[in-house]
């Protein structure tokens, strides 16, 4: 990207930054609002089962056929394993209903995983934001 083309983009980015508070991905209590959730029907596209937090990516298709990629964050793999949630329970291509907590910064396509509901009726619950980090 040339210096000439970077200028307007930088202006746009800074304008956006001035209106959208940035919050860290690391402190999930700061990033997500555990009192508000949303649900989307989505197709899982990628699973990253890594420390310190797992990520699941999924495509959401609206009634017009427009596909929007979503990102979902979860807890540490160790805590998930101890609560019975394993990487092998999810597969790329699975069509699921994902329930997640909203991001406090207003990002529409980012959520903290609460539950994944499968077509056959079984569901897998994740923790809540305050469970990922000690509050005291």
């Amino acid at each position: 990207m040339t210096r000439r083309s970077l200028g307007p983009l930088a202006v746009m980015a800074l304008a956006l930054l001035s209106s959208i508070p940035l919050l860290a991905h690391h402190s999930v209590t700061a990033e997500f609002d555990s009192s508000k959730s949303f649900t989307v029907k989505a197709t899982i596209t990628k699973i990253e089962w890594v420390n310190p937090h797992i990520y699941m990516y999924a495509d959401v298709k609206d009634e017009n056929g427009t596909v929007t990629p979503y990102s979902f964050e979860g807890g540490p793999p160790g805590n998930l394993r101890r609560s019975g949630v394993l990487k092998t329970m999810f597969n790329v291509g699975d069509v699921v209903s994902i329930e997640a907590y909203i991001a406090k910064d207003g990002s529409k396509h980012l959520g903290l995983l609460h539950a994944v509901h499968f077509a056959d009726g079984h569901q897998i619950f994740f923790g809540r934001p305050e469970d990922s980090e000690g509050k005291n």
């Binding site: 989307v40 959401v60 427009t66 929007t68 907590y101 396509h109 609460h114 569901q123």
Partner: peptide, 16 residues
């Protein structure tokens, strides 16, 4: 820009 196009439902509801 994509926000208005999302097939998002139940926003703000209490989780299961």
């Amino acid at each position: 820009m994509a926000a208005g196009l999302a097939a998002q439902e139940g926003n703000g509801s209490q989780p299961a």
